[in-house]
Structures are given as structure tokens and as C-alpha cells.
Amino acid sequence: MTEINPSDVCKESVFQEIFRKNAQDLHDFLYYKFGSENYPGDLVQEAFIKLWNNCSKVPPQKARSFLFTVARNQMLNELDKKKTVLKYQKQLSIDRDLETPQFKLEEREYMERLQRSIEELSEEQRVAFLLNRIEGKKHQEIADILGISRKAVEKRIYTALSKLRGKLEKL
């Protein structure tokens, strides 16, 4: 976006471009924060509708941080809020057929334990950790998304990793 006209976000083409650039990231963030049961897709839509309704006040280069600020502030009604659930997909590995039944059993137990452990992490630790390990976001990027310092991001990721390791060791 080369133009810096403050009302540009109100242009449909500019708005669509912002949507395409940010929707997936925003969705990932909301998914790791609230889990699949709390409709992260709807929360993404809400954030973009808010951007649209404020399009004249938000310059295009500020749109991304506006969207994440809105997403961060989305407080779910405690009564409606469902437990954060993250689903995992079956790993597709070529070697799987050669594995022994016992290995498979251990593998499944490991995954289930990992799922529970991730779900038990605090919201803050989980979001930072998964954005880093799964989405490959750099520490600084995560700091921007969460509106916190880079140091804090590093700490959250490390703490999350330590917790997971601690829980998995007991296997």
C-alpha cells in the first residue's frame, strides 16, 4: 500500500487486501488463544467489521495492529466460553506401517498427553509458544501481535516449553 490517505481503508479494494494479508494470522492467534470451540472464524469477522466501521479513522499501515488490538480485547462471555480445545491431526508418516502396535499405542498416549498439556497452559503461554513453534513467527512478530515486549515473549515461550517437558517426562 503506497497511499497514506487515511480514508483508504474505506476503499473496498484496500480493505480486501488487508483482509487477505491478515485474516489467517488473526485466525491463528484467536485459535491458539480460545481454541476451536469458541468460533475463532466469527471472532475474525467481528474484528474486520470493527475495522470497516472505523475505516476512516485507521490508516492502512495501522490496520494490522488495530485488528490484533481488537482481537486481544475480545472478551468472551464467561458463561458462553467453552474450554479451550485444540485438535490434532493424525501424523502422516511413511514409516508408520513399520511401527509395532506397542509403538503406536505409546505414540497415541504421547499425543493425548501433549494435547492436554497444551490446553492446560495459560492462555498467554500457549499463544506465544504455538505461534512460535507452529507458525514459525519470530519473537518480535509475536511481541507486536500481543502488544508486549520481546523479552516477555521469550520468557513465555521458554516457560511453556519447560511445562510441557515436565508433563511429558512423567510418561
Binding site: 485474516a23 472464524g41 475474525v44 467489521i49 490434532y88 499425543m111 501433549l114 497444551i118 507452529i134
Partner: peptide, 23 residues
Amino acid sequence: LDQAIQSFKAPEMDVEKELHGLK
């Protein structure tokens, strides 16, 4: 651990569909 975690990746979003669904 790192490899296992990849299974928890957030589902891909159909960006175009969501964009058209915006009211």
C-alpha cells in the same frame, strides 16, 4: 515434541470465502 506439536496447527482458513461472508 516439536514434531508432535505441528499436529496442533490451526486449520487453514478459506480466506476468500470468509471475505465474501463479511456483512
